[in-house]
Design a protein around this nucleic acid. Structure first.
Length: 580
RNA sequence: CGGGCUAUAGCGCAGUUUGGUAGCGCGCACGGUUCGGGACCGUGAGGUCGUGAGUUCAAAUCUCACUAGCCCGACCA
């Protein structure tokens, strides 16, 4: 295509409201334009990239035997009431009314619609399993959209769902595994290095859920990874092995005066001990108004998600200072488990071995020393509520764990019968009994994937597209689009066009420097420069955006060479996808 | 929802303290010289100064209210 006919508003200026590379580059390369907070339009270049990503997703979904649909995004509220999400979802769900005051929803996902459509047709066990998907806009009224298309209020998502016989979980396992493979292939073909993270922290017996993360310092999830055995888990669920600490038993429990000394750090100085001897006691209040005292070794942090799951409460927050003292008589800063019997006390496994420990005495300016776990206090239970940190020991192999932040590009999980049950989807099984199918659910954020590609592939000059998702394969720059240069570049364009190669042809009257800078910014993998200088010897220059290599090609060989290079380059990504 | 900040030309910003003719750079248009890595000279177009009230002879500037956006946090299949 001719550059002069395309709308590619590139910019030298760094947009002021963009904080990350992919966002800055997408705006500077003229791929996207913001309409309002969290809502972006895809301009022609962005649109081409999204279509490339969609195409890869489509090919891989189709390989698994998944059926593509195209569903409406405006959905009767009735369906959402059936699934209960009309009530459970809160303000994130866009709700509206039509002229008949009918409730409608802008779809944030499509479980309801697919389940509703298939309800009438999944009548026999012979109809199962069935996999369906759709690529389209989703709407979520996010509290805080950010990072451009990374987290928007509208975004394109591929969402797939599979339906299986209730009595055949192996069928769900198979589709789930097919999807797990398809996802790995999709991201590799996009040139992305993703890390699949099991959300059930990799315990035996098969994963219930897998998130596909790309490491990034702007990521919103923290991931724990073991470099030696490959253990990977979300920090919220990650486990670690407790270090063996040789505690010295120092005798009987006794009360000491600790005037105005509340923090672990101050205490270790004051008592001349170390933080492993501290029994950190944190008072939490649950959403049903109960208090819980959580204990953990002084040098560790409590994982509130784990605690919340153990207590099986929807919400948990640190107790309010005044309320804690008023209702329980506990001065925060001096809280401890000794003598506590009115509220439940939950201890992390790290507390179990402590002897000669230090803990608050529930009296102002007093701490207990020589505290022995199990002797001086007995928690309701010792469980794992430890927040894993960098350097902690791998639960599988004992090596030191690493921590990094990641962006979630995709998520696959087993959904059970939540939707099929609420929509009363039933089929007749072999024995004539009526059954409810079970489902799997598989999503990918399409624009987020494209943004992640940029995040991983750029330099100070601009984007460096992997050829598989590049808006074009080749960028031709006639130095001055006139005379001999014009003839030769037109010829190469014609040859490439007829070979099906996607070419961006810079026929603008701009100076060469401008064209080169725009080309670097846009980042198409192969660039051909046609200028008088080379044509004297009958040659044009091939520039590789990724490697920076330049070479001269004879004019008559140029198109053929390019076709070969493009095929080779694409094959690299295909081969990566084929690797196990 | 809490904390911080911002709103002036298409973009990036100055001007606000101390009220008095609306500025700069980039971009854009025209003319000329240039032309293998964001050229130069000249001329020019383009702004209800976020919105609404108020104070004043006079408001981008002072006062009040509102709105929108950004950053940090809380939240998030």
């Amino acid at each position: 295509m001719k550059y002069s006919q395309l709308f590619i508003p590139t910019s030298k200026e760094v947009p002021k409201d963009a904080a990350i590379k992919s966002h800055i580059l997408m705006i500077r390369a003229g791929m996207i334009k913001k309409l309002t907070s969290g809502i972006y339009s895809l301009l022609p270049l962005g649109c081409r990239v999204i279509k490339k990503v969609e195409c890869i997703i489509r090919e891989e979904m189709d390989r698994t035997g998944c059926n593509e649909f195209l569903l409406p995004v405006i959905i009767p509220g009735e369906l959402w009431k059936m699934s209960d999400r009309w009530y459970s979802m809160g303000p994130e769900l866009y709700r509206l009314k039509d002229r008949n005051m009918q409730d409608l929803v802008l779809a944030p996902t499509h479980e309801e619609v697919f389940t509703f459509i298939l309800k009438d047709h999944l009548k026999s066990y012979r109809d199962l399993p069935l996999s369906v998907y759709h690529i389209g806009y989703k709407f979520r009224d996010e509290i805080r959209p950010r990072y451009g298309v990374m987290r928007g209020k509208t975004f394109i998502m591929k969402d797939a769902y599979s339906f299986h016989r209730e009595a055949d979980p192996g069928s769900l396992d198979k589709t789930y595994n097919d999807m797990a493979i398809a996802y790995r292939r999709i991201f590799k073909r996009c040139g992305l290095k993703t890390i699949p993270v099991s959300a059930d922290s990799g315990s035996m017996g098969g994963s219930l859920s897998e998130e596909f993360m790309v490491p990034s310092n702007i990521g919103e999830e923290e991931i724990i990874q073991c470099g030696s055995c490959g253990y990977v888990a979300n920090r919220a669920k990650a486990e670690s092995k407790n270090e063996k600490i040789a505690y010295r038993d120092t005798g009987e429990l006794s009360l000491v005066e600790t005037p105005d000394i509340k923090t672990i750090e101050d205490l270790t100085h004051f008592l001349k001990t170390s933080s492993e001897y501290m029994i950190k006691s944190l008072l939490y209040k649950t959403s049903d108004g109960k208090f819980v005292l959580a204990l953990i070794r002084g040098d560790l942090e409590v994982n509130e998600t784990k605690l919340k799951n153990y207590l099986d409460v929807p919400e948990l927050e640190p107790a309010d200072r005044g309320e804690a003292f008023e209702k329980l008589g506990i001065p925060l800063g001096f809280a401890g488990p000794v003598g506590v019997d009115k509220i439940s006390v939950v201890a992390d496994n790290s507390v179990k071995e402590i002897k000669g420990g230090v803990t608050g005495a529930n009296k102002k300016d007093r701490h207990y020393v020589n505290v022995k776990s199990g002797r001086d206090f007995k928690p309701d239970e010792y469980i794992d509520i430890r927040l894993v940190s960098e350097g902690d020991l791998c639960p599988a192999c004992g090596s030191a764990l690493n921590m990094f932040k990641g962006i979630e590009l995709g998520h696959i999980f087993k959904l059970g019968d939540k939707y099929t049950r609420s929509f009363s989807v039933t089929y007749l099984d072999e024995d004539g009994s009526s059954k409810v199918p079970i489902m799997g659910c598989y999503g990918i954020g399409v624009e987020r994937t494209a943004a992640a590609v940029i995040e991983q592939n750029n330099d100070e000059k601009g984007i460096i597209w992997p050829i598989t998702v590049s808006p074009f394969h080749v960028h031709i720059i006639p130095i001055k689009y006139d005379g001999n240069v014009r003839e030769v570049s037109d010829l190469i364009l014609k040859q490439l066009d007829s070979a099906g190669v996607e070419v961006l042809f810079d026929d603008r009257g701009e100076r060469p420097g401008v064209k080169f800078m725009d080309a670097d910014l846009i980042g198409i993998p192969f660039r051909v420069t046609v200028g008088e200088k080379g044509l004297k010897d009958g040659k044009v220059e091939l520039f590789n955006r990724k490697t920076g290599d330049r070479e001269l090609m004879k004019v008559k060989d140029a198109a053929g060479q390019l076709k070969k290079r493009i095929a080779e380059e694409i094959k690299i990504y295909e081969d990566m996808a084929d690797e196990k």
